[in-house]
Design a protein around this nucleic acid. Structure first.
Length: 313
DNA sequence: CAAGACTCCTGACGGC
DNA sequence: TGCCGTCAGGAGTCTT
C-alpha cells in the first residue's frame, strides 16, 4: 500500500509528465472519490488550470495548479456540471490534494479510462491524467490551502529536525505502544504498516514496547532506522507485492525484495534466524522477530507465549 | 489521553 | 466447477 516512499516515487515520476501541462477537463466516475468540494464543483474548478508544480506531504500528493484560464474554461464545457453552473469559479490558484490509500494509482496514459478509473483528466497533449482505485478508498480534493485538505500531521520523517534527539524526546512525551504510535500520522507523517515493521526490526524494538520506556540509545537507533529504511525504499521506487502499487511508469517497485520482516511470517530472521512472527496490533498485521526485538518487560500475552516457547535466559 | 471497534471497498483465496 | 465466508488495510469516527 502506498506509503511515503511510494508517494514520493509517484510525485517524482509524474513531475516531468505534468509540470506545465494544462488540464482541459475532468470526469469523475466515482463521486465519493472527491472529498471536497462536490464532484461537480471539483470537475468544473479543476478545468482550465495548469499544473505548475508537484509536491508531497506525508502520504499525500499535491498538484499546485495555476489560476483558471478563462479561454479554456469556456471550452471545458465537457465537465459534467459546466452547463448548470453559471460559472462563478474561483480563479485563484488551487491545490489538487490526493491520497492513494490502499489501492490508488495516479499516472498519465493514452487510454482515457483504464479499468477501475475513478477520475480522469484530459491534458493539452492528448494524454490523460488517470486516477485508478480498485477499492475506492483513495480521495482527491481541490482546495485553496493545504490545511483545508490535510488533517493535523507530524513532521516529515526525512526532515532535518528528525534525529535521535527529536525521537528521544517525542517518545518520552507519549505513553503509547510503538507500532500504533508510528502509524499515527499526527506523530510522524508518511509511515505505514510496512515501513513501521521494517524500521522497528532494524532498530531492534518490539512493536508493543511503550514509547516512554524506550531508552535514549534505542530512540537514536529508531530515528536512524526510519531514515535508512525510507531512503532505501525511495531509491528502490517503493514496494510492490500485491499487484496494486505500480509507479506512474507502470513498473513495480523493488524494495519488497529487501523486506526483513513484513510478509515473512515463519521465515527465518535475516539477523538471527529465529522465525519471524505475526501478531495483530490495533487491527493491523504486525511482523517482528521475537528474539531480536525483545518483548517489553510487562506486556501482553505475547510475552507469555514467547517465553513458554523456549525463551532461554 | 490511550486504545479498541467499526466503517468504507473489492479482489483474492481457502474450504467444501 | 462454483458458491461463500474471510481477509487486508489507511484513516476517520465513535466508544470504552
Amino acid at each position: 500500500m502506498p506509503e511515503l516512499p511510494e508517494v514520493e516515487t509517484v510525485v517524482r515520476q509524474l513531475r516531468p509528465l505534468l509540470q506545465g501541462r494544462l488540464i482541459e477537463g475532468a470526469r469523475v466516475l466515482w463521486k465519493r472519490t472527491i472529498a471536497q468540494p462536490s464532484a461537480a464543483a471539483f470537475a468544473r474548478d479543476v478545468t482550465g488550470r495548469r499544473v505548475e508544480a508537484l509536491s508531497r506531504r506525508g502520504k499525500y500528493f499535491v498538484l499546485h495548479l495555476s489560476a483558471q484560464e478563462a479561454a479554456t474554461r469556456a471550452r471545458g464545457a465537457r465537465a459534467p456540471s459546466a452547463r448548470s453552473a453559471p460559472v462563478r469559479a474561483d480563479r485563484a490558484p488551487k491545490l489538487l490534494v490526493g491520497h492513494l490509500r490502499m489501492t490508488g494509482r495516479l499516472f498519465v496514459d493514452d487510454d482515457p479510462k483504464p479499468p477501475w478509473t475513478r477520475a480522469t483528466f484530459p491534458l493539452d497533449n492528448g494524454r490523460h491524467l488517470i486516477f485508478v482505485d480498485v477499492r475506492k478508498f483513495g480521495r482527491l480534493a481541490l482546495v485553496d490551502a493545504l490545511e483545508q485538505a490535510l488533517p493535523a500531521m507530524g513532521p516529515e520523517p526525512l526532515g532535518p529536525e528528525i534525529d535521535g534527539e527529536w525521537m528521544a524526546q517525542a517518545l518520552g512525551e507519549r505513553k503509547r505502544m510503538l507500532k500504533p504510535l508510528l502509524l499515527d500520522q499526527s506523530f510522524l507523517a508518511g509511515l505505514g504498516n510496512i515501513y513501521v515493521d521494517e524500521s522497528l526490526h532494524r532498530a531492534r524494538l518490539h512493536p508493543l514496547q511503550l514509547s516512554h520506556r524506550v531508552s535514549r540509545a534505542r530512540a537514536v537507533d529508531l530515528a536512524a532506522s526510519i531514515r535508512d529504511v525510507l531512503t532505501a525504499a525511495i531509491a528502490k521506487q517503493g514496494s510492490s507485492f500485491d499487484g496494486f502499487y505500480r509507479t506512474p511508469e507502470g513498473q513495480p517497485g523493488d524494495y519488497q525484495h529487501e523486506f526483513t520482516v513484513y510478509g515473512r511470517e515463519g521465515e527465518p530472521c535475516l539477523r538471527c534466524a529465529a522465525p519471524i512472527r505475526r501478531i495483530v496490533v490495533g487491527q493491523r498485521g504486525t511482523h517482528f522477530c521475537a528474539r531480536c526485538q525483545r518483548a517489553p518487560r510487562k506486556a501482553v500475552g505475547e510475552r507469555r507465549r514467547a517465553s513458554k516457547a523456549g525463551g532461554s535466559r
